[in-house]
Simulated scan of single mutants.
Amino acid sequence: MELLAAADEPSPCEPGFNSCTLLWKITGNEALSLDTGVVLDKIGQVLLIILAASLLRWIVNRSIARIIRQVTAVKGPQPIAELAEKLSASAGRRMEIVGDRSAKRAETLTGVLQHVSGIIIYSIAFMLVLSAFSVNLAPILASAGIAGIAIGFGAQNLVQDYLAGIFILLEDQYGVGDIVDVGDASGTVVDMGLRVTTLRSLDGTLWYVRNGQIMRVGNSSQSWAYVVVDTPLPPNADVDTAGDRIQEVAEAFVEDEAWSDYVLAEPEYLGPVEVTIDEIKVRLGVRTTSDKQWAAGRELRLRINEALREAGIVDPNGTGRIYVPRATAGGDDGAA
Rank of each mutant, 00 (worst) to 15 (best):
I140N: 09
I214S: 04
A225R: 08
A296D: 02
V209H: 08
F126R: 01
R62H: 13
E82M: 13
A65H: 07
D203L: 05
V228D: 15
R62F: 12
A252C: 03
K292A: 12
D35H: 01
A7L: 00
A7P: 01
K281N: 03
G331P: 07
L48S: 14
S186V: 06
N157Q: 13
A185T: 05
E310M: 03
A296C: 10
V227P: 06
I80Y: 04
L264S: 09
V176P: 01
V60L: 07
T72F: 12
L158E: 15
S143N: 13
I151P: 04
V209K: 03
D256G: 06
L48T: 12
K25E: 01
P234V: 10
S11R: 00
A138Y: 11
G334T: 07
I146A: 15
L199R: 02
L194G: 02
T241I: 05
T288W: 10
S19H: 09
S33H: 00
M215N: 14
L169T: 02
L113I: 00
A6S: 00
Y226F: 12
L141E: 03
V227Y: 12
V116E: 03
M192G: 03
G145E: 10
L83G: 10
I59C: 02
P267L: 03
V254K: 05
T108P: 15
V314C: 09
I166P: 07
F153Y: 12
F153Q: 06
S260C: 02
Y226R: 12
I59G: 05
R101A: 09
Q78D: 07
L141M: 14
D100H: 08
S54E: 03
R105C: 06
V263T: 10
M215Y: 06
I80E: 06
A31M: 02
G118T: 10
A142K: 05
A81R: 06
L113S: 11
L34T: 10
G111R: 09
I140M: 13
A125D: 14
E14Y: 00
G16T: 05
G152H: 08
L83V: 11
E279T: 11
L3R: 01
L23H: 00
A91D: 06
I140A: 12
R101V: 10
I43P: 03
E85Y: 12
E306W: 06
M192S: 08
G177L: 07
S117F: 08
A52H: 03
V282I: 14
E251N: 07
Y226N: 14
G152D: 14
I97W: 10
G243C: 14
L308I: 06
V60T: 11
A225T: 08
G152P: 04
A164W: 09
V74R: 13
S221L: 13
R93W: 08
S221Y: 14
L270H: 11
A258D: 08
R326V: 15
V39Y: 03
T21F: 02
F126H: 04
L23C: 02
T36E: 03
A296K: 09
R105Y: 01
T328L: 14
E2W: 00
A164K: 03
I322K: 00
S11F: 02
I277W: 08
L202C: 04
S221F: 13
P139R: 04
V71A: 10
E299W: 09
S221V: 07
